[in-house]
Amino acid sequence: MTGPVKPKERGPIVWYAVLALVVIAGVVAVVATRGSDDAKPVAGQTAAVTVAKDGADALPTFESAQDDPAVGTTIPTVSGTTLSGGKLTIGPDDGKAKVIIFAAHWCPHCQREIPLLAEHLKDSPMPDDVELLTVSTGVEASRGNYPPSAWLEDVGWTAPTLADSSKSLAASTFGLSSYPYFVVVDAEGKVVFRITGEISVDQFDQLVAAAQSGKSPI
């Protein structure tokens, strides 16, 4: 005759195995990251930015290249420090046409765009009458591909690059709504065209031509 039914007790072995796995992973993680300095802020990646009070107003936030209300308006004047420690002013009064690129180190689109343009500029440098300027903005040490100075150096980016403030003042003053962001300015300091998102090298060449001619590419 058979007696009362009892469940098999297999649990502890499985749970001990899981516990051992978790402990091993924990020990490996602690040992492997001892002395790690990941995500610690690096000096000079953000810096104070000044907006000239007697300069033009901030540009409206970019929404669309079609019927952009910023076109024809004078760009504001922002001053600050470059990633290499020099001084840089971006404004309308230097008499130079310019293409200004706003990029964030963690943005995957910027991570594709900047090396693409860096490679292109090796073969097709900027014309003498158009200046290429960059603003490194949206900087956060906890996000990937940090610090931006190392990233830009790695990809061979040589254009002067303004370090935006920790609150991205330069970007907001120029009406940034997403990265990467391009502002095309003619020699009189007026906005010719604005666009956001990844562009091809041919489109970039059109932006340069637009800065030279003062005529929108669309």
Partner: peptide, 9 residues
């Protein structure tokens, strides 16, 4: 680019 061609800040 599956979602968009630019990054929301």
């Amino acid at each position: 680019n599956l979602e968009t061609s630019s990054c929301d800040p």
